[in-house]
Lab assay of single mutants.
Amino acid sequence: NLYFQGLKYMVPGARVTRGLDWKWRDQDGSPQGEGTVTGELHNGWIDVTWDAGGSNSYRMGAEGKFDLKLAP
């Protein structure tokens, strides 16, 4: 699974964008943008601060869902 392989790169400072299971509307800005991981992966959740200004926790394994992917 590509998403599980990418988890080791989901570290503080990593750049991310919305992924396969995104369901959080425009939390990442409008139009959709990139963000920066600000915390360690914990119980399948990870913290992100978006360039647009907001921050929140997103699923990276929790509930079998992956809200994020590494930015290109």
Score class of each variant (00 low, 15 high):
Asn1Ile: 11
Asn1Cys: 15
Leu2Trp: 11
Leu2Met: 14
Leu2Gln: 15
Tyr3Ala: 14
Tyr3Phe: 14
Tyr3Lys: 12
Tyr3Cys: 15
Phe4Tyr: 14
Phe4Ile: 13
Phe4Asn: 13
Phe4Trp: 15
Gln5Phe: 10
Gln5Val: 11
Gln5Pro: 15
Gly6Leu: 15
Gly6Gln: 15
Gly6Arg: 09
Gly6Ile: 15
Gly6Trp: 15
Leu7Arg: 08
Leu7Thr: 08
Leu7Asn: 08
Leu7Lys: 08
Leu7Tyr: 09
Lys8Leu: 11
Tyr9Lys: 09
Tyr9Leu: 09
Tyr9Asp: 11
Tyr9Thr: 08
Met10Ser: 03
Met10Ala: 05
Met10Gly: 03
Met10Val: 09
Met10Arg: 05
Met10Phe: 15
Met10Thr: 03
Val11Asn: 07
Pro12Ala: 12
Pro12Val: 12
Pro12Gly: 07
Gly13Cys: 10
Gly13Phe: 05
Ala14Phe: 03
Ala14Thr: 11
Ala14Val: 10
Arg15Thr: 02
Arg15Met: 02
Val16Pro: 01
Thr17His: 07
Thr17Cys: 15
Thr17Gln: 12
Thr17Ala: 11
Thr17Phe: 05
Arg18His: 05
Gly19Ser: 07
Gly19Thr: 06
Leu20Arg: 14
Asp21Ile: 02
Trp22Val: 05
Trp22Glu: 05
Lys23Asn: 09
Trp24Thr: 07
Trp24Gly: 08
Trp24Arg: 04
Arg25Lys: 14
Arg25Thr: 12
Asp26His: 08
Asp26Ser: 08
Asp26Gly: 07
Gln27Cys: 08
Asp28Val: 05
Asp28Asn: 13
Asp28Cys: 07
Asp28Phe: 04
Gly29Gln: 06
Gly29Lys: 04
Ser30Phe: 12
Ser30Leu: 11
Pro31Thr: 08
Pro31Gln: 08
Gln32Leu: 10
Gln32Phe: 13
Gly33Leu: 07
Gly33Lys: 07
Glu34Asn: 10
Glu34Gln: 13
Glu34Asp: 08
Gly35Cys: 02
Gly35Asp: 00
Gly35Trp: 02
Thr36Ala: 04
Thr36Leu: 07
Thr36Asn: 03
Val37Arg: 00
Val37Trp: 02
Thr38Leu: 09
Thr38Tyr: 06
Thr38Glu: 06
Gly39Tyr: 02
Glu40Trp: 14
Glu40Tyr: 13
Glu40Arg: 11
Leu41Asn: 06
Leu41Gln: 06
His42Leu: 12
His42Arg: 13
His42Ile: 13
Asn43Gln: 10
Asn43His: 13
Asn43Ile: 05
Gly44Trp: 06
Gly44Cys: 04
Gly44Lys: 01
Trp45Gln: 01
Trp45Gly: 00
Ile46Met: 06
Asp47Cys: 15
Asp47His: 14
Asp47Met: 14
Asp47Lys: 14
Asp47Tyr: 12
Val48Trp: 02
Trp50Glu: 00
Trp50Leu: 01
Trp50Gln: 00
Asp51Met: 03
Ala52Thr: 11
Ala52Phe: 09
Ala52Trp: 12
Gly53Asp: 03
Gly53Gln: 02
Gly53Cys: 06
Gly53Ala: 04
Gly54His: 11
Ser55Phe: 11
Ser55Leu: 09
Asn56Thr: 04
Asn56Glu: 08
Arg59Ser: 02
Arg59Pro: 03
Arg59His: 02
Met60Asn: 03
Met60Val: 08
Gly61Met: 01
Ala62Arg: 04
Ala62Gln: 05
Ala62Asn: 07
Ala62Asp: 05
Glu63Cys: 15
Glu63Gly: 12
Gly64Leu: 07
Gly64Tyr: 06
Gly64Thr: 04
Lys65Cys: 15
Lys65Leu: 04
Lys65His: 05
Asp67Asn: 00
Leu68Asp: 00
Leu68Ser: 01
Lys69Arg: 12
Lys69Gln: 14
Lys69Ala: 14
Lys69Phe: 13
Leu70His: 07
Leu70Ile: 10
Leu70Tyr: 10
Ala71Met: 10
Pro72Phe: 13
